[in-house]
Write a protein that binds this DNA or RNA. Structure first.
Length: 309
DNA sequence: CATCTAATAT
DNA sequence: TATATTAGAT
C-alpha cells in the first residue's frame, strides 16, 4: 500500500558522482579485509606514515581517499594459502571510516532519493559502495538526520555551541557534512502537479515549473566548480559503468506515483548559512575493481546489467 | 519475516 | 568522538 515512487529523480541522478576517469590506483585496499582485520586496519591516526596529517603539505591536496575496501572474503581459489579455515563469517570489520567523500555520496544519495526513499537499504544500493552494509548506512543515517535536525531546529548558534559567525553550524560537522547543494525536495503534496520534483538535472535546465513557493532565499547556492568532463564513462576496459545504473537500481518495477508522504519539515525560515566560498572541489573516488578475471569480487561494477543478487 | 528507527555500548 | 551493535517498533 502506499507504494509510491518517483521515477524522475533517480532517472538520471548520475550527476557527476562517478569520477571521470582516473580510478585511484590501487592503494590501501590491496590488503584483503581478512588480513586487515587480522591486523587491525592500519588506518589509525597514530603514526601517519608520511607525517604531517594536515596543514602544510599539499595545498592542492585533495582529501584522502575513501576507505571503503572490503570484500567478503572467501577467496576461492587461489592459493588458499594461509588460512585454512576462514570463517569468512563472523569477521568483524574494522570501523568504517566515513570519509568526506563517502559522505558526499551518502548525502547526494539521500538528497536525490528524497526523504521518501532515504532509507538505509536504498541509500546503500544507491551509493554502490562495496563493503557498505545496511547497518553501516543506517548508523550513519542517524547522525545525518540529527545533524539536519539540529540545523533546522536551531537556526544558528543557540545551544551551546556558538561558533563563529557567519554561518551557523558547527565546524567539524559542517566540514564533514558540508553538503554543498542540498537539493532537498519539498515534499509538498501537490494536488495535481505534473512533475512535482524534477530531479535536478546535471545541467542548468530551466525546468522551472510553476512553483509559487515562497521559498526562503536559498542563499548560498553553489555550483560545482569542478569542471570535469563528465560523460564518458561508457564501457571502459573492464569497467562498464553507466549512469543508468540507478534507473535499475531502485526502479525495481514500481509504478511510482506521487509521493504522498507525511512531510514534516520545519518551515524554518531561518537562513542557513553555508560554508565559506572557498572552492571546494568535490572529488569522488572509488577504487577497487575486479581486475579481470581473477578477482571475482563484485566490487565496483555495481549493477552490471541487472541482476544483482 | 523483513526493514527502519532509536538508544546504547564500545 | 564516531561506529557498531542491540532492541524495539512497524
Amino acid at each position: 500500500m502506499t507504494e509510491e515512487e518517483e521515477p524522475s529523480w533517480f532517472a538520471r541522478f548520475d550527476e557527476d558522482l562517478p569520477a571521470p576517469d582516473e580510478l585511484m590506483p590501487l592503494s590501501q585496499s590491496l590488503i584483503t579485509r581478512d588480513l586487515a582485520a587480522a591486523f587491525d586496519i592500519p588506518t589509525h591516526g597514530g603514526g601517519l606514515p608520511g607525517g604531517a596529517p594536515d596543514g602544510a603539505g599539499g595545498a592542492g591536496g585533495q582529501e584522502m581517499n575513501g576507505g571503503a575496501s572490503s570484500a567478503a572474503g572467501s577467496s576461492g581459489g587461489g592459493g588458499g594459502g594461509g588460512n585454512g579455515e576462514e570463517p569468512a563469517r563472523t569477521l568483524k570489520r574494522p570501523r568504517l571510516v566515513w570519509t568526506p567523500q563517502l559522505h558526499k555520496r551518502f548525502v547526494d544519495a539521500v538528497a536525490h532519493l528524497g526523504i521518501k526513499n532515504a532509507v538505509p537499504k536504498t541509500i546503500m544500493q544507491l551509493m554502490s559502495v562495496d563493503g557498505l552494509t545496511r547497518e553501516n548506512v543506517a548508523s550513519h543515517l542517524q547522525k545525518y538526520r540529527l545533524y539536519l535536525k539540529r540545523m533546522q531546529g536551531l537556526g544558528s548558534g543557540g545551544g551551546g555551541g556558538s561558533h563563529s559567525s557567519g554561518s551557523g553550524t558547527d565546524a567539524a560537522t559542517e566540514h564533514l557534512f558540508a553538503t554543498g547543494p542540498s537539493p532537498f525536495l519539498p515534499q509538498g503534496r501537490g494536488p495535481a502537479v505534473a512533475d512535482p520534483y524534477t530531479a535536478y538535472a546535471p545541467m542548468p535546465a530551466h525546468q522551472a515549473a510553476h512553483h509559487h513557493h515562497h521559498h526562503p532565499p536559498q542563499i548560498g547556492h553553489f555550483h560545482h566548480p569542478a569542471a570535469r568532463p563528465l560523460g564518458h564513462y561508457g564501457a571502459g576496459p573492464g569497467g562498464g559503468f553507466d549512469h543508468g545504473f540507478l534507473s535499475r537500481a531502485v526502479a525495481s518495477g514500481a509504478p511510482v506515483g506521487p509521493p504522498a508522504m507525511h512531510h514534516r519539515m520545519v518551515g524554518g525560515g531561518a537562513a542557513m548559512g553555508m560554508m565559506a566560498p572557498s572552492s571546494f572541489a568535490d572529488e569522488l573516488e572509488l577504487g577497487s575493481r575486479g581486475g579481470g578475471g581473477g578477482g571475482g569480487r563484485r566490487e565496483l561494477t555495481l549493477f552490471p546489467t541487472s541482476g544483482d543478487h
